[in-house]
Amino acid sequence: METLKMYVFLMLLVVGVSGGDTGCGGKTADVYFLLDSSSSLSRSDHDKQLEFVKDVVTMFDIGQDKTRIGMAIFSHMYREVFNFQAYDTLAQLKYAFTKVPYLSGRTNIALALRKIRQHVFTSNKARENVSHILVVITDGGWFQTQAREASLLHNMGVNVFAVGVTKNANNNGLEQIASLPRGDDQSFLFNVLKYEDLDNIKDSLVTRICKVAGL
């Protein structure tokens, strides 16, 4: 019996030590996801996109003094789903993912980026002295003003990851959105052909976000 008690104690000790080392090892960051919700996505693709983001978020240590998560969706309009202050736990975030609506409509990335700049990474919303990270997932759409909006975000110190889905995604537009570098193993730019392929880049994306969070 004493041997069994000692075994249980050691197992609890191991879990306790490793439990705080989730994903980025406890590094702090404000990470915001901007998701395409236009008519070019089917509802099935919309759900696959959300499942991918949920899997990514699961790999972070969530909390108001740790990694905070926010999310917005866009088509020709922009809608914030939840901000950095909304949820304190991973369980709360997972439940929030089940409530994300599907917008439909045209794709206007420029509008969405402007809203992010004006209402998300501001002094009263985002924390000082932590990395500010934006992950944009889209399957296309391009507006002349999106290069300017992306540049303004970059100049604010926001690290922008651009994930293009399907062969229809505008690569030039994605390159304008993504922070530098864009063409090597440190790239802020990702491409997949189908929404079900997003899982193939999950580990690489999380690794890159963690590196940025460690700056």
Results as ranks from 00 to 15, higher is better:
Tyr7Val: 14
Val8Glu: 12
Leu10His: 04
Met11Leu: 14
Leu12Trp: 08
Gly16Cys: 08
Gly16Ile: 00
Val17Trp: 02
Ala29Trp: 06
Leu35Asn: 04
Ser40Cys: 07
Ser40Gln: 07
Arg43Tyr: 11
Asp45Ser: 11
Glu51Lys: 12
Val53Tyr: 12
Val53Asp: 12
Asp55Tyr: 02
Val57Leu: 06
Ile62Gly: 01
Gly63Pro: 05
Ile73Pro: 07
Met77Arg: 06
Met77His: 04
Arg79Val: 03
Val81Ser: 06
Val81Cys: 07
Val81Leu: 10
Phe82Ala: 06
Asp88Pro: 00
Thr89Asp: 08
Leu90Gln: 15
Ala91Val: 04
Lys94Phe: 05
Ala96Thr: 03
Pro101Trp: 05
Pro101Tyr: 06
Tyr102Val: 00
Gly105Tyr: 03
Arg106Cys: 01
Thr107Gly: 07
Arg114Phe: 03
Ile116Arg: 01
Gln118Asn: 11
Glu128Val: 05
Asn129Trp: 03
His132Ser: 09
Ile133Cys: 04
Val136Thr: 12
Val136Ile: 10
Phe143Glu: 15
Phe143Ile: 02
Gln146Tyr: 09
Ala147Met: 06
Ser151Pro: 00
Leu153Phe: 11
His154Gly: 06
Phe161Tyr: 14
Asn171Ser: 13
Asn171His: 10
Asn172Ser: 10
Leu174Val: 02
Leu174Pro: 01
Gln176Tyr: 11
Gln176Pro: 00
Gln176Lys: 13
Gly183Ser: 14
Leu193His: 14
Leu193Thr: 15
Tyr195Arg: 06
Leu205Lys: 11
Val206Pro: 09
Ile209Asn: 04
Ala213Gly: 14
